[in-house]
């Protein structure tokens, strides 16, 4: 874009717009101050909309041979169709189970992003596999208690305690 001076003063224009009013093209070039006076301009480096769209289309066109609605999370049993109804996921593993359709959704709601950028827990020793193993065992524990198999429950509780490095709250059960 060619360099413009502000329409109202000598400062360089940082706000440019073209409007069509009654079939006539009206260009506006304003400095920060005068743009502010006219209305609002926020300048922040957000991803341009066409980049968002490209990402969106790219992900959407990937093969969807089996429809996403049939996807099921092995860990909590939630189906993608159920997720779409309630817009709540059932467990951390749902993020992997539904990764493909979810990435499309995430890109749409998070300015095109599908990856975390920010704080990472310092205790990163707790890997994802580890987290899943714990969840599986806690599920078995819950089933054992429901079935009143207290021997198995006690065993599982010990194992969970060893893995998680914390005493499992036996008194709560």
């Amino acid at each position: 874009m060619e360099k413009h001076k502000c329409d109202k003063c000598d400062r360089p224009a940082t706000y440019h717009s073209v409007e069509i009013v009654n079939g006539k093209k009206i260009e506006k070039h304003l400095c920060e101050y005068h743009a502010a006076e006219e209305g609002l301009t926020f300048k922040v480096a957000h991803k341009p909309i066409n980049e968002l769209l490209t990402n969106f289309v790219k992900m959407h066109s990937q093969d969807q041979s089996s429809g996403p609605n049939e996807l099921v999370c092995d860990h909590c049993g939630l189906t993608y169709a159920e997720f779409q109804e309630r817009s709540l996921l059932g467990c951390p593993s749902c993020y992997q189970a539904f990764a493909r359709p979810l990435d499309v959704l995430l890109a749409r709601t998070h300015e095109g992003s599908t990856e975390h950028h920010g704080k990472i827990p310092s205790q990163s020793g707790f890997g994802e596999q580890h987290q899943q193993q714990l969840m599986r065992m806690r599920k078995r524990l819950d089933e054992a208690i429901t079935a009143e198999d207290y021997e198995l429950a006690a065993h599982l509780r010990d194992e969970i305690g060893k893995i998680s490095g914390t005493a499992e709250g036996g008194e709560t059960l």
């Binding site: 860990h75 909590c76 709540l88 059932g90 467990c91 951390p92 806690r138």
Partner: peptide, 10 residues
């Protein structure tokens, strides 16, 4: 959310 548990709703 605490690791190794389902979310509250499930």
């Amino acid at each position: 959310n605490l690791a190794g548990y389902p979310f509250v709703n499930r």
